[in-house]
């Protein structure tokens, strides 16, 4: 039966460019919306995935233009499980960033222009796991299902 759970919603590979990330985010949002996720929760997934994938493009493939990123989405009973795999530069210390909120302060000249990515991701997910084996990195993010009514 095609509605069985778990089931694969999307599986694709794309180039490590910000234009390809943008296109992929559209596919991700469409796939989770088609699986019944409400619009607000769909945007939460798109936002967290934008942060995670832009980090890969900007940090893991900073010095390589032809990086490939593999992405898959599994639909589970209560969650979406999204895997990002690539063979670029691993996470520093082979660990996920803590994702502390950036310090804002009062001085406009000193306002941060970045450093929000992992804070946003951690605000939007159930959990995240990272592994590094034989030059391959895998980041798995899980998101709660929030069906549209």
């Amino acid at each position: 039966m095609c509605d069985s759970i778990p089931r694969s919603l999307l599986s694709l590979s794309f180039q490590s460019t910000s234009d390809a990330v943008r296109k992929t985010l559209g596919r991700i949002a469409q796939a989770v919306a088609d699986a019944g996720q409400n619009p607000t929760a769909t945007n939460n997934i798109e936002l967290a995935m934008a942060e995670a994938l832009n980090n890969v493009v900007e940090h893991s493939f900073r010095d390589r233009e032809n990086g490939q990123i593999l992405l898959s989405i599994m639909l589970l009973e209560d969650s979406f499980r999204i895997s990002i795999r690539h063979d670029g530069t691993p996470m520093p210390g082979l660990r996920l960033p803590a994702g502390k909120p950036a310090t804002i302060g009062n001085e406009i000249a000193n306002l941060p222009e970045g450093g929000f990515g992992w804070f946003l991701i951690r605000s939007l997910i159930i959990d995240a796991t990272y592994s590094h084996r034989e030059n391959w990195n895998e980041l798995v993010l899980r998101f709660s299902r929030h069906p549209a009514r």
């Binding site: 936002l47 934008a50 942060e51 832009n54 406009i108 000249a109 306002l111 941060p112 222009e113 970045g114 929000f116 990515g117 946003l120």
Partner: peptide, 13 residues
């Protein structure tokens, strides 16, 4: 996304 947010902050700065 946070890059866009950073760009708005940069536009103010």
């Amino acid at each position: 996304d946070s890059s866009g947010l950073g760009a708005i902050v940069a536009a103010m700065k």
